[in-house]
Design a protein around this nucleic acid. Structure first.
Length: 484
DNA sequence: ATGTGC
């Protein structure tokens, strides 16, 4: 399929460079859109009749957008905004905030822990560790935890303070906070903008994984591409790592649901014309916009705290499995579903990243000193059978994508199709035969999350690296997978 | 993603 077909039929894009394409402003778009893709990714986009690129064009119609509307190489169809979408809005130009531009799982993200344990040491205790982790980190839809209770007044404080509230009470180490994006605390969190129902749903779920694509993986570093960055991050071949992927659970979901509804009601009042109801938005500088941002930031702090507590119980599981006294340091905790006020091109803009990560380049004062020379760690989880990647933010991401990069492999099959493809197979056994132990709350999720249901993360990473919006640092191979 | 449809 050539890009010509795209021009003629529907979307109309042009190639800017090997991996970079532009959709010129057309129809109700207020600015151009730019997307990153390989020829192969382009074929995937064509196969879905450019549905996700059309969503990106919809994003470009929203008021106050700062050009261009962007998507990362892992773009796929999502609620309103495409997953992999990045869009910045200027509050002084009537810019909007959109819950669909953040996602239902507010501040979903990944945290990478690094140990001094070798792959060989892990081999001796792998089954034991898998069992301990599965016991220590509840997973599955609606699951809570019984051994950690937080009262309402404390939860309110946690929504404002994030993981520091936990660290102060012994759930973690003081150094943990240095490795979290924004130190795990988004400013402006408003616990009063979070509904009673959201509190109720979130309260028992702190320290739980959830379901779907969420996971906890024990891995090892099997390849290093950039020695200098790997050294700065403290990564070396054969080393055991832990990758935690989870978000704000029922609390964030409830916040998103309620504000989408509210924004739909008020959009006419602000003269916002929506080409798609799922793009529901309100001005950043409006009572509704401010309330959502307050609630979203609170949910974000809850998600950071959730990963903090999961990391705490992960450390306990490692100790019980015979790795007592061995450190598990936070390399980085990075969100991929949020909206943040940032300075770009001497303007203060609200950057929505929906299935996209922050990827600040070298020298950025936001970064911990030890990473400042090489740029921010960018974590790109792959599917559960293959590999995940660590990249570094670049000058290119700062210049082209409001300091953003890709967040993962992206689905290739629908959940329904994956389930069908898994019929008659025992995926857990297949994984075990290649040395990956799976512990899951249910088999259905494992089927839906099968390796073949995902695009190859390596492809996404090649495009990201090739386009210069992220730099390959290391590859991680799974050994233990805990799923919902 | 999600008390996996109101």
């Amino acid at each position: 399929m050539s890009e010509k077909a795209g021009v003629a039929d529907t979307v109309g894009f042009e190639r800017l460079s090997e991996y970079r394409y532009r959709i010129p402003r057309q129809g109700k778009m207020r600015c151009d859109a730019v997307f990153y893709a390989s020829r192969r990714i382009l074929e995937d986009l064509a196969a879905e009749d450019y549905a996700s690129l059309r969503q990106l064009m919809g994003v470009a119609t929203l008021p106050g957008i700062v050009e261009p509307a962007l998507s990362m190489p892992d773009i796929h169809w999502g609620y309103g905004f495409p997953i992999g979408g990045v869009a910045a809005f200027d509050p002084e130009e009537g810019g909007v905030v959109s819950p669909g531009g953040v996602g239902f799982d507010i501040n979903c993200g990944v945290r990478l822990l690094v140990s001094d344990i070798s792959r060989e040491e892990l081999a001796d205790r792998k089954a034991r560790l898998a069992d301990e982790l599965f016991r220590s980190v509840p997973s599955g839809v609606g699951r809570g935890r019984k051994d950690f209770r937080i009262g309402r007044p404390d939860l309110r404080r946690l929504l404002v303070e994030g993981p520091s509230w936990l660290v102060e009470r012994g759930y973690g180490e003081p150094g943990d906070l240095d490795g979290i994006e924004s130190r795990g605390r988004l400013a402006g969190a408003d616990p009063d903008a979070v509904s009673e129902r959201a509190y109720q749903r979130g309260q028992p779920q702190l320290g739980t994984l959830g379901s779907g694509n969420h996971f906890l993986e024990v891995q090892y570093v099997d390849e290093v591409y950039d020695e200098e960055a790997a050294r700065a991050y403290g990564l070396h071949p054969g080393q055991v790592t832990v990758l935690i992927h989870s978000g704000s659970r029922g609390l964030g979901h409830q916040v998103c649901t309620e504000y989408v509804e509210r924004f739909l009601q008020v959009a006419p009042k602000y003269g916002i014309e929506l080409v798609d109801r799922q793009l529901a938005a309100a001005p950043i500088d409006s009572p509704e916009g401010r309330a959502y941002l307050g609630a979203m930031s609170a949910a974000a702090n809850f998600a950071f705290a959730n990963r903090q507590l999961i990391a705490h119980f992960t450390r306990e599981a490692f100790a019980r499995a015979g790795f007592g006294g061995r450190p598990l340091r936070v390399l980085y905790d990075l969100a991929h579903n949020n909206a943040k006020l940032e300075e770009h091109g001497a303007r203060r803009v609200l950057v929505h990243r929906k299935g996209a990560t922050r990827a600040f380049g070298p020298g950025n004062p936001e970064l911990p000193e030890r990473y400042r020379g090489v740029g921010q760690p960018v974590l790109v989880p792959g599917d559960m059978g293959r590999y995940s990647f660590v990249l570094a933010g670049t000058e290119g991401s700062m210049r082209e994508t409001f300091g953003s990069s890709a967040h993962g492999a992206g689905r290739k099959m629908s959940r329904r199709r994956a389930k069908k493809a898994a019929r008659g197979r025992d995926l857990i056994r297949e994984m075990e035969q290649v040395g990956i132990l799976v512990r899951a709350a249910g088999r259905a999720t494992v089927d839906e999350e099968m390796s073949e249901a995902y695009k190859d993360a390596a492809e996404v990473v090649e495009v990201t690296d090739g386009a210069g919006i992220g730099k390959k640092v290391a590859r991680l191979r799974p050994q233990i997978v805990v799923k919902g």
